[in-house]
Design a protein around this nucleic acid. Sequence first.
DNA 1: ACGGACCTTGATGCGTTCTTGACGAGCGAG
DNA 2: CTCGCTCGTCAAGAACGCATCAAGGTCCGT
Lengths: 222, 222
Amino acid sequence: MTRILVVDDEPQILRALRINLAARHYAVAVAEDGAAALRQAADWHPDLVVLDLGLPDMDGVDVIHGLRGWTHVPIIVLSGRAGSADKVDALDAGADDYVTKPFGVDELLARIRAVTRRTSVPDGDEPSVRVGDHVVDLTGKTISGGVRLTPTEWHLLEILARNPGKLISQRQLLHEVWGPAYSKETNYLRQYMVQLRRKLERDPAHPVHLITEPGMGYRFQP
Amino acid sequence: MTRILVVDDEPQILRALRINLAARHYAVAVAEDGAAALRQAADWHPDLVVLDLGLPDMDGVDVIHGLRGWTHVPIIVLSGRAGSADKVDALDAGADDYVTKPFGVDELLARIRAVTRRTSVPDGDEPSVRVGDHVVDLTGKTISGGVRLTPTEWHLLEILARNPGKLISQRQLLHEVWGPAYSKETNYLRQYMVQLRRKLERDPAHPVHLITEPGMGYRFQP
DNA sequence: ACGGACCTTGATGCGTTCTTGACGAGCGAG
DNA sequence: CTCGCTCGTCAAGAACGCATCAAGGTCCGT
């Protein structure tokens, strides 16, 4: 289920979007100001953010920057300002689309579909990877041999497996899985890497696929 | 260089876009009807298509379908029709964005940047350099031949490798890697240059790629 | 309320990496 | 020729990061 975070300070818009999105079977969370939006995004990891630029506590463009600092989650901006400069600023800050209020709900829904389609398609090219004796199906969330992973373990493994051979910094992993507030909690990483290795590696003490790069991060080696 | 195919039957729009895009260092091709657009896309493989829906020979939505049959190239639609249904049809057919005419050139350019940013990041260009017998991948932090570098070694090598052929002063290297307080500790540099050469150079005693410029700094020679 | 699965958090031991000092070789200047 | 400087090399203790174990804590369904 696609998770959408709606950020707006006008209750009627919030209400209308929540109803419409829920009717289309999206999971919806809402935030009424920029600080709450950033917190929600970090906690909940939405698949899409619908962001009103006119927030009470901070500039909408700063919210975009705050999100882009650690995630590439698609952002669709809503704004009452139709000026060209406003659009350019928001898009160049990292927004994916810009819709001028008043907007048609049908149009917004179509743009949501367009943006989610674009981001979900490239992911689907590598459905399964091999780790040791097991075959991991990233899309189906299944592993051969009766191995089961917890949600956090899946999240971690996915990030690594989608970048085979590439080093992923611990900072990036912590940001993606636990949120920006946990950049320093490397214990979490150690803990979960141990569990992943225990479940997937043939010899957990001498990992072949889930490699530690001391002081830098981790790497998935196919 | 990003290649953009512009599809429009109005000569003045074609002309304006061609000039503006060329000025931003995009490679531009044009087509004046749907059939030509499909042919051009197949031949030239553009990185982005800007498509006017009001073409003389066929419906714009059919052009989108024709493209989507074999490619996921981003499509930005231009249209004089502002109706919600038109937008929904085009977006659901596979368009990535929908801009209503008349449009601001700045806005279109920003939307082009937004769309290309999203599609080009996952592709991930792989800047790799050769040092002696080894191939160094700076983004994946990998080196051929099973060579491993420590974080500090990577940091140092990155600065040098990102400026091939250029002389980097010791002051600058120390400043970047160890911080402003260590501008005088040239022994650190000596220490780590030795290790880098030992790991990368064919003959560490007579370096070919990691060159010392006595009294000034170091240079990476590709 | 209870039990289990999952997530957080702390502590310990060990291997690697970093830091730091010292010494000799090479080189140009006086 | 000698001095002064910089660089390459070596060595050793300090500091750091990681794997691992273990113990709450939280949230869920029975």
